[in-house]
Structure formats: structure tokens, C-alpha cells
Simulated scan of single mutants.
Amino acid sequence: MKRTAQVSDSMIINVDADTLWAQVADPTQMPRWSPENIGAHTPAESRPLQVGEVFEGSNHRSRAQWVTECVVTASEPGRRFAFQVRRIGAGSPVISADIATWVYDFEDVGGRTRITETWNDDRSAWPDWVAAIIDRVLTGGSSFADFQRRNIHWTLTTMKDEFELTS
């Protein structure tokens, strides 16, 4: 069975697209919403990153922790922020590999914003059966697509709750 290589979800949040984009385009803010991300180290002070800038993300799942190296591939104020995960490791990102691409699209809907978060599985060189076994081990029994579908919904719901509580 061919694996799902892309998962996305959308939510409308009662905040303008520029404000929401500025927060998402600063990876140091992601631990506020993500169930896995616990921090990010950026090349300069906390701010929206631009195309080509590299940052490290710290993540955890259960007792496992890892660090990723990511490069920003899109950074359009109020419209899009995207990055590619290109290295990974336990203490530092030492293993180079095509891992994933994350995309956040922002659409103005009358002063509110439809944010769409998309995860792309970049492990296209991996045979589906190998990915399926590894996915089930690393996620506790599900595919990465199903796992990321839940994570994306969690992230967007947490964003909505936070932004609408403060607006």
C-alpha cells in the first residue's frame, strides 16, 4: 500500500493574517502550540525568518528527544511560511536526509485568517514498506500521516485558543 505523503488541515482564527504569520514565521514561538516542538535556535534574535535562513528545532515524543536542522523555503508576510527539515540527530542534527517540509498558508477571510498547516513526507527514496515499519515504531503504532494529522489539528486548535483568548 502506498503511503500518504501529504497531510494538511485548516482553521479560521480571529486574528489578522500578518499578525499570525509574524508569530509562525518565528520558529522560537512554535513550542506554544505544537505537541512535539520544545524549542528553536535561530540565527539572530527572535523574529520572522527569511528564505534561506537556517534554524534548529528541538523536539520530543514520549521520552525520545531529537534536534533538526531546517532551512526556510518561503517567507511571505501574511501569506506563507515554509521550511524543509534536512538534518536530524539525537543531540545535534548530524544525519543529512530528506525528511519533511512544513508549510503554513495564511488567507485573509474578512479580518480573520484561514491558516492551513501542511506536512509533506520528503522520504520519497524510502521504500513504502520500510517507512511503514519505522513509522509504526516511532509513533507507537500509526503511520506518520495519521500521526501528523493529529499533531496538526492539535497545533491549529491551540493557536486558535491562544489568539482568540488574547484578541
Rank of each mutant, 00 (worst) to 15 (best):
D9C: 14
R61H: 15
V137I: 07
Q65V: 06
W154P: 04
D9F: 13
W66R: 00
G78V: 02
V24T: 00
D16I: 08
R136Y: 03
S143C: 10
M11G: 12
E53G: 03
K2H: 12
P35I: 01
T139K: 08
D108F: 04
S167E: 15
W129P: 05
E45S: 10
N151I: 03
R87V: 01
Q65K: 07
E107H: 12
A5N: 15
E117W: 06
W126F: 02
R32A: 11
T4I: 09
S62L: 15
A82C: 07
A145F: 05
I13C: 02
T113A: 03
R150G: 08
D9M: 14
I152C: 00
F106E: 02
E69C: 08
E36M: 14
G78Y: 01
S167L: 14
D128G: 15
A131M: 08
G110N: 12
T113K: 00
W21H: 01
T116N: 04
A132K: 15
L20N: 03
K2L: 10
A44V: 07
N120H: 14
E162C: 09
T28W: 03
R87C: 09
A125I: 08
E117L: 08
N151M: 10
S167N: 08
V67T: 11
S62R: 15
R149S: 09
H41E: 12
E45I: 10
F106V: 04
I115D: 01
T157C: 04
T73D: 06
T118V: 01
H60D: 13
G111K: 04
I13F: 02
R149V: 06
E107F: 08
N59T: 00
I38L: 02
H60Y: 12
F55V: 09
T158Q: 13
L20K: 02
A97E: 13
T101L: 07
M1R: 11
V71I: 10
D128E: 15
Q148F: 10
V94H: 14
W129V: 05
R3Y: 14
F163M: 00
R79I: 11
V137Y: 08
V130Y: 05
D128P: 11
I134D: 11
N37S: 05
E69F: 06
A82T: 03
N59A: 10
A64R: 08
V67H: 04
T42A: 07
A145R: 09
T19Y: 07
S75L: 05
E117Y: 00
I134A: 15
C70Y: 01
T155P: 03
R63Q: 12
V72H: 00
V85K: 01
G110A: 11
M159C: 03
Q65L: 03
E56R: 13
H153N: 13
A17S: 12
E36K: 15
